Structures are given as C-alpha cells and as structure tokens.
Computed example of a mutant assay.
Amino acid sequence: MTPWPYSFWIAHRGAGKLAPENTLAAFRVGASHGYRAFECDVKLSADGVPFLLHDATLERTTTAQGVAGERSWAELSALDAGSWHSPAFRGEPIPTLADIAKYCLHNGFALNIEIKPTPGTEEETGRVVAGEAARLWAGEAVKPLLSSFQPQALEAAKAAEESVPRALLIDSLWPGWLDCANALRCAAVVAHHSLLSTQVIASIHGAEMLALAYTVNDPATAQRLMEYGIDGVITDAVDRLSPSALVCG
C-alpha cells in the first residue's frame, strides 16, 4: 500500500462542536488544539460554486431557510453561519472550497473533502469538486482526499480528475461495499467506527486500501481502533483527543 500521506488525527467539520461547523473559525479552533488535518463537507451553489455545508437545507446552521443548493453564491455568501452556535461567532460566513484551500495550503494542513451533493446533483458535484480540488492543489505533492457516501459522485470525480485520491464512506457493511471501493479505485474506506473490527480492517488492507474511522469521540474507542490497525481517525473531540497525547501504532 502507498504510505498514508495525511495526519492520523482528523478534525471533523473543522472543530465542529467547539465552533460553527464547516467554517474557517472551526478550522482555526481545531488548529489551536494541535490538529493538522481536517474534514469538511462541500456542495454546489445554484451557480456552481463549491462551498462548505453539511445539510441539504440552511435552517440548522445559518440564518436562512430552504435548500442551499438552490441559492446563488452571492446569496449564500451573505448569510450568518455562526450565530446558531454561539454569540461569539455571530457573522461568521460560509466559506468556499477555495477559502479553505487557501487556509490549508498556507498552513501546511491536510484536507478530507466529503462530497455532499444536493440530492439529484451527485455527478455534477463530484465532477466540479474534483476539478476544483485539482486546480487549487495543482503542483502539491499531497492532494486532498475526496470522500462520499455516493458512489455516483466518486465515479464522476474519478472520471474528471483521477489523480485526486478518493475514499468510499460507509455507514453499514452493505453487500458489495468493498468491491465498489475497488471499482472506484479508492485509496481508502472511511467507515463508522462501530463497523470496524480487525477482520474488516484486514479486508480493507487486503484490497490495498487504507481504513479510516468516523466519528470517534472517546479515548477508549480510539485506542481500540489503533490496536486493530486503523490508519486514521476523524473526531469531534478535538479538545479531548489530543494528537500529541495519544500515539498511534
């Protein structure tokens, strides 16, 4: 297998519990706790701009309502994506993928981009996000990892920019998941931590892919997965799972 080029510890949605998820503020909080690799969710605006947001709709994490992907970037960029979390983050904007790329590249941070399509836009989102990732990280030895629960999005990403590595996200061991990851030429499988046993990790490794776990928020689970041979851990608990305090391997 190709050596894993990313940090073992990955901050989920930035530091998405301590600060408003999927914002630059969350990335800065994660970095302040020693994290050097981050996960975020990316979808497309109505006019094709890749931006960070987890939900299909805006209600939970912004001051607006409705389907996010039906709005132009000009509309989305004016929203408050911070006050829902706490008054300290009032006015925090939704960032574009380009904003996050600039921050990560400037600081030497790694990024796992979850392709999070608005329903019905799986192929377009995979294609555009892969293209933008290739452009933004052009000339960089380590590209971002593109992950998705949607095989159609990953297939479109592979067709658009095969050089940008991919990972299949799974929340169950559905029939054919490993064959699907193989067919997509994935570099990794990212699974819910409860699915991962020594046997499952061995099967992923046997297919010459890396195994990552989400979302691991307690030290005992992290330690168990390390003993099983996990290659990376995505966590919300950036204030409790310190990369310098827990040693992998």
Results as ranks from 00 to 15, higher is better:
153 A>L: 09
201 I>E: 02
97 L>C: 14
163 S>Y: 04
49 V>G: 01
197 S>G: 14
42 V>T: 05
142 V>G: 03
117 P>I: 05
12 H>R: 03
135 R>F: 07
96 T>Q: 12
185 R>F: 05
5 P>E: 08
86 S>F: 12
172 S>P: 08
225 L>G: 07
52 L>M: 06
10 I>W: 01
17 K>D: 15
242 S>L: 15
232 G>C: 09
81 A>G: 10
202 A>E: 11
130 A>Y: 06
181 A>H: 00
162 E>M: 02
89 F>A: 12
84 W>A: 14
31 A>K: 02
42 V>N: 01
20 P>L: 05
114 E>I: 07
155 E>L: 14
194 S>V: 14
113 I>P: 04
13 R>W: 07
175 P>A: 12
85 H>P: 05
228 Y>F: 15
207 A>Q: 02
220 A>E: 15
79 L>Y: 10
82 G>T: 03
240 R>L: 14
224 R>Q: 11
173 L>H: 02
190 V>D: 03
239 D>W: 11
14 G>L: 06
56 A>Q: 10
153 A>G: 13
164 V>T: 01
104 C>P: 08
117 P>F: 06
188 A>Q: 00
90 R>P: 10
211 A>V: 05
79 L>H: 10
25 A>L: 01
204 I>A: 02
236 D>W: 07
120 G>A: 09
146 L>N: 06
132 E>V: 09
75 E>G: 14
126 G>F: 02
214 Y>W: 12
195 L>P: 00
236 D>R: 07
12 H>Q: 10
39 E>R: 05
99 D>E: 10
149 F>S: 03
135 R>E: 09
133 A>T: 05
216 V>F: 05
229 G>D: 07
235 T>V: 10
93 P>A: 11
116 K>V: 07
24 L>R: 02
22 N>V: 11
34 G>Q: 04
237 A>T: 10
63 T>C: 11
188 A>K: 00
74 A>C: 14
172 S>W: 06
131 G>I: 04
151 P>W: 11
46 A>W: 00
101 A>D: 09
111 L>R: 01
84 W>M: 15
196 L>K: 06
216 V>H: 03
54 H>F: 08
47 D>W: 09
163 S>P: 11
104 C>L: 07
161 E>M: 13
49 V>K: 01
181 A>T: 00
194 S>D: 14
82 G>I: 01
202 A>H: 09
118 T>V: 12
26 A>R: 01
62 T>Q: 07
238 V>T: 15
78 A>M: 14
123 E>M: 13
110 A>E: 10
40 C>H: 02
210 L>Q: 08
167 A>D: 05
15 A>Q: 03
91 G>W: 12
132 E>K: 06
183 A>Q: 06
136 L>Q: 01
234 I>D: 05
120 G>C: 08
9 W>F: 15
167 A>V: 06
107 N>W: 12
101 A>P: 09
104 C>S: 11
5 P>K: 06
136 L>A: 03
162 E>T: 02
24 L>V: 07
56 A>K: 04
20 P>D: 09
106 H>Y: 10
20 P>N: 08
17 K>I: 15
223 Q>R: 13
231 D>E: 12
174 W>E: 08
90 R>G: 13
182 N>V: 15
242 S>R: 13
